[in-house]
């Protein structure tokens, strides 16, 4: 049974789901699967039917689906991220006089600042609603939890970029023209790396006082290579700069943190 069906059956208002509810659904689904009741209930939000053991990919997909579903119902985090990013773009644009050549810098600064707002939300919401324990009760490696959270964060940031890119293009009168797939690819590469570091620090923020306050302080200095590489690549795509070594910088950053962050994530979330 899918979560949606479950919610409908109980007559709950589907617009106000609780993460607790989803977490319990996850746990029940998982227990059912463990007991060998194959096919009795869908895993998590019904993304995939349970047939025996859960593969890592399906676990990660279930976590990501749950997070994105919750976010889709409320749209709180993404709205705040988009608002802050747009505000940053407008303020910086006004301060710099809206010249086209600052557009890449404004785009990336706004993107990174908007991302900071959303990074800790996914994990902190779990802790606030008391569902983190349920997630951590799953047997097996926590690496899949990381990948699920990472995929959800990547989705959020992609949504942010999808709003921000046209806005910056309009505000600063620049256009990527036929090279827009390159620009989208660059932004996506940046987002992938940001999400990897962000997921790690979002989990880290759970265990310190003041939670979200610490995330910008940790994330912004570390994210500097993404910011710089993104700015230069965007300039190159808009025809005002050279490509140089920047694709390699982005790729190295992404690969390094996609390899390291899942390992460190397990150390960070252990024994809540």
């Amino acid at each position: 049974m899918s979560l949606r069906a479950r919610v409908a059956q109980r007559g709950m208002d589907p617009r106000t789901p609780s993460a607790l509810e989803t977490g319990r659904a996850d746990l029940q689904a998982h227990r059912a699967a463990e007991a060998g009741a194959a096919g009795a209930s869908g895993v998590a939000a019904g993304a995939v039917p349970a047939g025996g053991g859960l593969t890592g990919l399906r676990r990660a997909a279930a976590v990501a689906w749950k997070d994105l579903l919750l976010e889709w119902r409320r749209r709180e985090t993404v709205a705040a991220m988009v608002f802050l990013a747009c505000l940053t773009a407008v303020l910086l644009g006004f301060a710099f006089g809206g010249r086209g050549e600052v557009a890449p810098a404004v785009l990336w600064v706004a993107l990174v600042l908007g991302a900071v707002l959303g990074v800790s939300r996914l994990t902190v919401a779990e802790a606030e609603q008391g569902t983190l324990e349920a997630l951590l009760l799953y047997p097996g490696a926590r690496e899949h939890l990381f990948w699920g959270k990472w995929a959800a964060l990547t989705g959020l940031l992609t949504a942010l970029a999808a709003v921000l890119l046209p806005l910056v293009a309009v505000l600063f009168g620049v256009a990527a023209g036929p090279r827009w797939p390159l620009l989208a690819g660059t932004v996506l590469l940046g987002i992938v790396g940001l999400a990897a570091v962000g997921t790690l620090f979002g989990a880290l923020a759970l265990h310190v006082r003041g939670r979200e306050l610490l995330v910008p302080l940790l994330l912004l200095p570390l994210a500097l290579p993404v910011l710089l590489a993104g700015i230069r690549l965007t300039e190159a795509i808009l025809g005002t700069g050279r490509v140089g070594p920047w694709p390699a910088v982005l790729a190295v950053f992404d690969i390094l943190f996609l390899l390291v962050a899942p390992i460190l994530f397990e150390l960070v979330v252990e024994e809540v």
Partner: peptide
């Protein structure tokens, strides 16, 4: 947690250094 941050920071240092240099 401090060990995780120290490790991530040290890993990031070369990338930061070269990106700032090339920038």
């Amino acid at each position: 947690l401090a060990a995780v941050v120290a490790l991530v920071g040290a890993l990031d240092v070369p990338i930061i250094h070269f990106s700032v240099l090339w920038f």
